[in-house]
Amino acid sequence: MSTALHPLASLQQIEKTSSREDGIPADLEEDLRAYGCKLIQQAGILLKQKQVAMATAQVLFQRFWFVTSMKQFGIGDVGMGSLYLASKLEECPLRIRDLINVYDLLLSRAAHELNAPLHSSTYPPFKYTPMGYFSQTFYDMKDALVVAEMQILKRLGFGVQVVLPYGTLVNYLRVLGLVNQDDACQRAWGYLNDALQTPVYALYSVPTIVSAAILLTVRHIGISLPSTPPNCWWELFDAEWEDVWTVAGHIMRLYRERSHEERTRTMRMVSKKEVRKWLDERAASMVL
């Protein structure tokens, strides 16, 4: 990662991530990143964490995969480690026990959904039984969480400074006169939150990401802003059009239709064990 105040991935890391070097396709890595961030958000809501802590955790999670492969660490473990670390950085610390219980609940529910037959109405509803205080599962998850937090700090070189975009968004909307314009602020805020499921916070500066959220907002609401050179509104914020358009594309890809096979494939590969199993099966099928 770069040594700037807001660490960004290098060109070499962007062109070929560690996961892709290990044979994980770009689309699968993209889906696993998004699913890992969804788990962080869901866990944070259940644990009543601050939004800033959940956002910080997701940014750290995204940065981690530019220096490490998903073959080496599971997205579930790194998600837990990211949220635990972010809760301390934002001064709203979590109890390890609570975090493990919530992640176990989320993963158990996902496993139940995977086992349910497609379009079945007779499959029994999900029921969660908390693990015992002294069960081996708890100790295994605790060890994985501690290791994940340590590896995040180590591999990011303790560069855990995160600049969040929410204050910048409000300032930009005021400059453009959009604060009182229908639901522009709420919609743009939502795009910024959705963008946390993509790598953009590890690729672009905050002004560029905020400009992309505003671009999507005004296009969906139908608000006209100066967009013809030399009077382009994004230039007020030192953002390049190509970068703003690329960030908007990353966000919009989140809303694309995914097949049932794509969704189940992602949900199954929360652990590094499942990722390695998938890679082995893929390699075997290519040999045949």
Rank of each mutant, 00 (worst) to 15 (best):
W241H: 14
V52S: 15
A43S: 13
I96Y: 06
V179I: 14
I214N: 06
C92G: 13
S271A: 00
L279G: 04
Q42C: 00
C92S: 13
S285L: 03
V102G: 04
L5M: 08
S271W: 01
E29M: 00
I40N: 07
I214G: 04
L32S: 05
D280Q: 15
A195E: 08
T208K: 07
S2R: 01
F138M: 06
R276G: 06
L118M: 10
E15F: 06
A86G: 09
V200D: 08
T266H: 01
F64I: 09
K50D: 14
K142D: 10
V287L: 13
F158E: 12
V67F: 04
E29T: 05
K38S: 15
S135F: 02
A284G: 07
V287C: 01
T17V: 10
T208A: 08
A148T: 10
L164P: 11
Q62K: 12
G222A: 01
S205Q: 13
D238H: 12
T228M: 01
Q12E: 07
R97W: 14
M286R: 07
V247S: 00
K273D: 12
M80Q: 04
V146S: 12
A34I: 05
E242F: 10
G23Y: 01
I152L: 04
R174D: 03
E21A: 07
A213I: 09
R155K: 09
W233E: 11
R276N: 04
Q161C: 15
V52A: 14
Q41A: 13
Y139C: 07
A116G: 08
I214Q: 01
L118C: 03
A110F: 08
E29R: 11
E274S: 15
Q136R: 11
L99V: 10
S211D: 03
T266I: 07
I214C: 13
A57L: 06
R97G: 00
H6A: 10
V275F: 10
A144T: 14
Y35K: 07
V59C: 03
Q42G: 09
Q58V: 06
L176A: 05
P207D: 11
N171H: 12
I96T: 12
S224M: 04
I75H: 00
T122R: 03
L169D: 05
V170K: 05
P117D: 04
K88Q: 14
E235S: 13
R276F: 09
A144Y: 02
D77I: 12
Y166A: 07
S18T: 06
E240F: 05
S69W: 00
V270M: 00
M150V: 15
H220S: 13
R97Q: 10
A213F: 08
L178F: 08
